[in-house]
Structures are given as structure tokens and as C-alpha cells.
Simulated scan of single mutants.
Amino acid sequence: MNKIVGVLFIALTMSSPLVWGSCRGPSGIHLPYPDYQIGSENAPVSAHDPSTNQSLPWTASLQSTYYGGNIEWDTCNDRGRGVDSIVWSSSPKVPGASYSDSYGTYDIYQTVVDGVGYIIRSKANVTDFRPVMGEVTVIYPNVAYTNTASHYQIKLVVYGNPKPGQYALPESLLAYWAVRSRESGNVISATVTPVYVQAQTLSVYTVGCSVTTGASQTVSLPAVGSRDFSGIGSTASPSASFTLGLECSPDISLYAVVSDGVNPANTSDTLTLTPDSSVSGVGIQVFRSGEGTPVPLGPESSQAGTVNQWYFGTGESSYVVPFDVRYVQTQEVITPGNLTALATITFSYQ
């Protein structure tokens, strides 16, 4: 018997479904930021100068393509219904502070340095920059493609009175980037992308106090006679006054020392007369206004603990410092003539 034998081979092939796109955002965008300094060691800026803001430039435009990638949304649930590219910040804002330029008004976000914050602006490839605020900022409405990029610029802004020093600013989360459905108004969670600024160093060179009035002045005392004195150490009743004005950061403790401009090593309470003085037996003393004891003299130094340095005050943004100047008898015999003395007052903040 002839037999016909048929053999059927069945091959089973397992394959993944064909994928045409994706619904995702990059894991994170880490924006580089250069080290900056406010002022310089040889030319510190006033802590009260609002133009300090202008010394800190914007970074170059930083594109997401180079720092993490694009958002792709062609397989998201809202494909075909339209999306907006949006950026928002959840960083702590500086209460009551803002910054404005030709692009608009910005919230200022805190850094580890009191008085210095970040501002940030963002754009898409085909749009202009817009300030990033705490609420959602639309940088590209109705995105025309199935993927989109974003660009960023960052700027440090001085909004207060930063203390001098060198600060290490750690990497910080600045904002989030995502696409949002135009139909539902919901953010597509798979596309939410954190935006970080990389670590940097900020050096601050500021002057915590500045003299506003009376930085250099000549004080003339009235003429007196030998009969106006009663002995060594006595002062003549006529006096002259002068005043200094200062502006300081409000958290600064202010100290002062009065120094002898002719003999800086003098730590007595009487100024040395200049060589062209013709009088003898009389000197000049400086008093804090309203006090009966002359100010002892010390070296012209701002170092803490300087000899005869005295504490002036803390917590004021402006000071008016009044002084009196009086003649004092220094010898038994007084020879009439003219006299001149020089004094310097060194204020320091600690």
C-alpha cells in the first residue's frame, strides 16, 4: 500500500508590537551656571546700592536638547487633541520681592544667601522668552509638533543686603517643564521634567556700612584765654560740635575707635598737636555728645578688640553720630597761640 505522509511544520514567532512614538519627558535637565562675584576684593560695592543687580548678567540661552532631551508626546492619551508646553516653579519665593525687564515681571526665588535670589525665564524653539513664575507659564501654546524643546536663562538678583563672604550654592531644583492637555487642562504626568541649576560659587564683596555725611570736615573752636581753665585736666566751657552720618545693613553691630592723626600710637584721651601749633599747655579732646568723659584714643584699626574701640549699636539702618570737641589744660603754664590737631574715626561692623 502506498502511503502518503504529509508533514506540517508550524512555526510560532513572538514579537513586540511595533512602536511609532512615545509619551515621555527627560529624567531631568541640569543647567550649568558659572561662578560669579558681587564687587571685588579691591573694589567692594555698597550693600545699599540697588544697581548691584546690573552686575550679574543672564546666562547664555541653555537648550534642553543638550541638557537632557526633548518632551515627546505623540503616544500620550491626548495625542491629536493639542497640548501646551508649560513651565512652573515650586521653589520658595522671596516674599514681596520681584524683578522686571523688557520680558515682564519675575518672581525671585531664594538661595542659601540672604539677599540674593534667582530669576528664570524660558522659551520654546519658536517663541520668545517669558518669565517663569510660581504659577504655570505657557512657553508654547498648541504645540505644532509631536516633540518639543525648551530653553532657559538664569540670573542672580541682589534684592537685599548680602553679607560679605564666599558661598557654595548647591544644585537646586528651580522649575518643572511638561506638556498640558488643551482639552482637559491636565498636565500629562509622564512628561513632567525637573529643571535644576548646577552647583556654583558666589563671592560677595560688599561694604556693610557707608558714611553718608561728614566723611571729611574741619571743626573750628572759639578762642579762649588762660583764665578759662582751672588747672591741669580742666576743660574750657566753649566747645564745638560735628556730626557723622552712616547707613548700615540692619543686622550689623557697629563699633568705633577715635585715633590720633599725628601720633597713631597715642592711647590717651588728648590729641597730639600738629608741629605748626604755637600754643603750649593746652590740648584738644573729643567727647561723645552729651557725655562728660573724653573718648580714649586707639589705633586706626577695624579689627575686633582694638584698644579703646567702643560699641556703638546694632539693628539700625542709619545712624547720626554727634561729637563735641573741647580744649583741655595739659600743663601748669599756658602759652597763648594757635593750635591744630587731627583725628580719625574708624567705624567697623562685626
Rank of each mutant, 00 (worst) to 15 (best):
D276S: 13
S216D: 05
E247G: 08
G281Q: 10
I232Y: 12
T267C: 00
T274K: 11
Y196L: 10
D276G: 14
A236R: 00
S234V: 03
V279K: 05
S259W: 15
L273Q: 03
I284M: 03
C248S: 09
A178S: 01
L173D: 09
T206K: 00
E171G: 08
S278Y: 02
T218A: 01
V262T: 13
V279N: 11
I188H: 03
S241M: 07
S237D: 14
I232E: 00
V258L: 09
L246W: 15
T218K: 03
G290N: 10
V282P: 07
G245L: 09
A223W: 01
A199M: 06
G245F: 07
L244K: 06
S259K: 09
V257T: 13
V204T: 05
S253I: 02
N266I: 05
L174V: 14
S237C: 08
T193S: 07
S239I: 09
A265V: 11
G283A: 02
F242E: 02
R288I: 13
Q198K: 10
A199K: 06
W177Y: 13
T243H: 11
D228V: 01
A190I: 05
A236Y: 02
V219L: 03
T212G: 01
V279P: 14
A223V: 10
S278N: 14
P170V: 05
S189N: 13
Y196R: 12
P222M: 01
N263D: 15
G214A: 04
G245V: 11
S234Q: 06
Y196T: 07
G290D: 06
D228C: 07
T212P: 07
A240E: 04
S234P: 04
P275C: 02
L273R: 04
S210G: 14
L273E: 07
L221D: 03
G214R: 00
N186Y: 15
G185V: 11
S278E: 11
V204C: 00
T201S: 05
Q285C: 03
A223Y: 02
V197T: 13
L174H: 13
F229G: 01
N263V: 12
